[in-house]
Write a protein that binds this DNA or RNA. Structure first.
Lengths: 372, 372
DNA sequence: ACCGATGTCGCAATCGCTTGCATAAAAAAG
DNA sequence: CTTTTTTATGCAAGCGATTGCGACATCGGT
């Protein structure tokens, strides 16, 4: 097969530069990479010609040759969710700074799709950063990535037993703080509305909730614990079930932003006033919380930090392949943001200070509002 | 250079399969691709062996050979913004269905970074889908992509003169509808708070705003038109300038979600009641709008559709390279969602119907609430 | 039994770039 | 003025997969 007719090719290769200068392609390659063997004048000539011809190295060829792609694969349950958006942002930022690019794919909380995405990524990225889907029950696909020698980092939701880095929130501590906040405000019958029972995050949050109850000598009532999903509809369903109870809760711990939103909307619909009739805290920090009426007490999970540390760990493992075989589990702290939804009506204004703080995140007009 | 020692390689290639079966790599390749020349038994043997060895084709090598990567490059101003999140979602969905993957990079509304991202993408994707940054004043970098023969599709913000597909909102119509809504509700002194003047979207929205004023015989006051940026801080600045006017506006048209949010927060701070003292409409549909108090009248820009059609156009251009040189500009309609913020206090409840509709977007628990 | 048709498969080149090794020229050393 | 060293460059293989073309074998036809 003859070499592609150069006159019909649109892209410029090192061979074009070489021909123009009557030197060899190897010299061109070395010159462009500043190899010390090449005479300075030659280097200059090559670089000039490269610029003149508008040469851009073929990344694919480099990848094949060097057996690395400078690509990070990310699998995220949903792109549009606030937390995952900020995680992506954090990943992108670090990747950009380190010269990597980000291949984003979503599982849509589906195990099957996660499988496909995993395989699709496996052969074109240098490392994978993933968050388990809600319904992932087997992790052979991730095992296989590891067997292929691919660095793998999990964030937010990670499998129990798999040798990989993890970046997780301190779910238990956060959950404890939120629950404690409700208790201190005088709520005693607090329901726990959460996602799939088998997920570690749910277990951990449940545990924090339970510990807070124990700590304050409140009884634990299994009826008040509902495991559905993290979605908006799940929240509606859970809320409805709670409202059907003979002995209704006087407050709700919502394990996700969407669940909390559902509670707000549904409570409004049946004329339950928050926080007067029903206290509410949310494990999440969708900006919407700050602006709702009443504003919702929540936990700010540092998604951006989660993404950036995950990316750092991943790139680190990629670049020092072989060394340091120990896998870390980073626990990110969360910040509780106390607003009106968890404060019993009486002392409302006295407890919540009235100022708001504006926090500029990265200088690109991407501000997040924290209200205390 | 000797072929890499197969015993040290972790990945399986067609050569491994070939050796095991004592046939040639070409035959393996053909068998895997169901080439008719290969005997059925051979095909079967090859496929069995491939499965047994857990063979996965090297995507990079294929890309080099076939001169295509099955990668779509996306440049987005901000990943975390609601609109762009849904656009990404739409792109990812279509890409996945058509066997492409998505390389996401963000410009952070910075021209320089957009430049870098453009070059970084140019050599490893089959097509680019981009949204101009707020500060992009030159488009030579995109021109160059075109010169390299790369399909290019713009969404939301597109350069004026460049032969490429565009997927845009019908900004003028949407703007007109929003303004009209304020006017009909009795507001007469409506300010226009928007992004950079040079952006076409801003021009178009301004035009819709002006046409609505004309249509209802309201005077146009240049003082009420403020061009800053689309961000939250920009909104604050603009709002402050408006409030310093001798003759304050009685309503505000906010050209972005963030601007609207800023107006809500700042108005609250100076005890201006919306909509009693100040009407407000927003060009955007951040879910936050529905839940704010008062709920904000806004425009639902169909981000998901924007993303999916952009991806479709892009893939189409990739796959029928050469044919059909005409470039389309798709104008997506927007849906106005009337809520309380644009309704003068008096007739509030009579005008806004009290039900809400839940719209399940894609079956993955990603619901968006529309409130009318 | 000879010949062309048909069916299967291998050789080798190629995508664009990198790099170990050889080589030639120039410089330094003897 | 040789010999050794240094400096600068070229050759060619190889990353893994694809594919035009040729090779060989089998088979039917006459």
């Amino acid at each position: 097969m003859p070499r592609l007719d150069p006159s019909r090719r649109t892209t410029v290769t090192i061979y074009d530069i070489a021909k123009k200068l009557s030197i060899s392609a190897s010299t061109v390659s070395r010159a462009l990479r500043n190899h010390p063997d090449i005479r300075p004048e030659t280097v200059e000539a090559v670089k000039d010609m490269a610029k003149k011809l508008n040469y851009q190295p073929n990344t694919i060829a480099q990848s094949l040759r060097e057996r690395r792609t400078k690509l990070l694969g990310v699998i995220v349950p949903e792109i549009q969710q606030h937390l995952y958006g900020s995680v992506l942002n954090g990943i992108e930022e670090v990747a950009f700074r380190k010269g990597y690019q980000v291949l984003v794919s979503k599982s849509g909380e589906s195990y099957e799709r996660e499988l496909m995405q995993t395989y699709a990524l496996s052969n074109q990225v240098d490392g994978v950063i993933a968050c388990l889907s809600q319904h992932t029950h087997k992790i052979d696909h991730f095992r296989q990535l590891k067997n292929q020698g691919l660095p793998l980092v999990f964030f937010d939701r990670a499998p129990e037993r798999l040798a990989a880095h993890r970046v997780l929130f301190d779910n238990e501590a956060g959950s404890f703080a939120l629950t404690e906040n409700l208790i201190r405000s005088g709520f005693t019958r607090i329901a726990y509305l959460s996602g799939p029972e088998q997920l570690a995050v749910c277990q951990e949050r449940l545990s924090g909730y339970q510990k807070a109850l124990e700590r304050y000598n409140l009884p634990f009532d299994q009826d008040l614990v509902i495991h559905t999903g993290f979605g908006y509809q799940d929240g509606r369903i859970g809320f409805t079930r709670l409202m059907k109870l003979e002995n209704r809760p006087d407050a709700i711990f919502a394990a996700s932003d969407q669940i909390a939103t559902a509670v707000v909307v549904e409570a409004r619909r049946i004329d339950l006033e928050i926080p007067h009739h029903l206290g509410l805290v949310a494990f999440g920090s969708d900006p919407v919380h700050a602006l709702l009426h009443p504003a919702i007490t929540g936990l700010h999970p540092k998604g951006y930090e989660m993404g950036s540390t995950a990316a750092q760990l991943c790139i680190q493992e990629i670049e020092q392949a072989g060394k340091n075989k120990r896998f870390r589990t980073e626990r990110l702290t969360t910040e509780i943001i106390i607003r009106h939804s968890s404060i019993k009506a009486s002392g409302e204004d006295s407890v919540v200070s009235a100022y708001s703080r504006f926090h500029k995140r990265d200088g690109f007009g991407d501000e997040v509002i924290y209200m205390y």
